[in-house]
């Protein structure tokens, strides 16, 4: 049994792949949509919270980078704040001009389904997604990481 478990484990690691599930999610405005309705051809997905300073830095940096790609990259920000902090999330989103753009979608992960599926803690955890396939996955944010995002996005668009 142990041998099979080890083979199973090795195979699952070797053949592991990751996509964005077509899960039903709730947006900040309380509307329910399918996650695939939000992801464009190319998307940037990030788990964040209002108290997470690196997450906010990443968002700010990303907003400048994204402009280089016109509206070709959609940004899905999956919020992990407690449900009691919804008003705080709304106020925060309202204070950031760029978050009101059409390419930004704030998803509320109230029951932590997405966080658990992607082992999102600790945050930020970010993905670059091409046709719902995760092509790049990164945890944490250090200033300068935007150069990696740019490299990855350029690689997709230059294919």
């Amino acid at each position: 049994m142990r041998k099979y478990s080890i083979v199973f484990l090795i195979l699952s690691i070797v053949f592991a792949q990751s996509t964005i599930p077509d899960a039903k999610v709730r947006l900040l405005n309380n509307k329910t949509v399918s996650l695939h309705e939000l992801t464009g051809d190319v998307s940037f997905v990030s788990f964040w919270a209002t108290w997470c300073i690196p997450c906010i830095k990443e968002m700010d940096v990303l907003s400048e980078l994204i402009q280089e790609y016109d509206d070709k990259v959609s940004v899905i920000l999956i919020n992990t704040d407690d449900p009691g902090k919804v008003s705080k999330v709304k106020s925060f989103v309202n204070s950031k001009k760029y978050l009101k753009g059409d390419i930004y979608h704030v998803v509320m992960d109230y029951n932590q389904k997405l966080s658990r599926r992607f082992n999102a803690q600790p945050i930020p955890l970010s993905f670059i997604v091409d046709n719902n396939n995760i092509v790049y996955r990164k945890r944490g944010f250090i200033p300068g990481d935007e150069h990696i995002f740019k490299k990855e996005l350029d690689a997709i668009f230059n294919q």
């Binding site: 699952s12 690691i13 053949f15 592991a16 990751s18 996509t19 599926r117 992607f118 082992n119």
Partner: peptide, 11 residues
């Protein structure tokens, strides 16, 4: 491996 096309793993 024949199931790989349909099954996805994360570890």
């Amino acid at each position: 491996t024949s199931l790989i096309a349909q099954i996805e793993y994360s570890n």
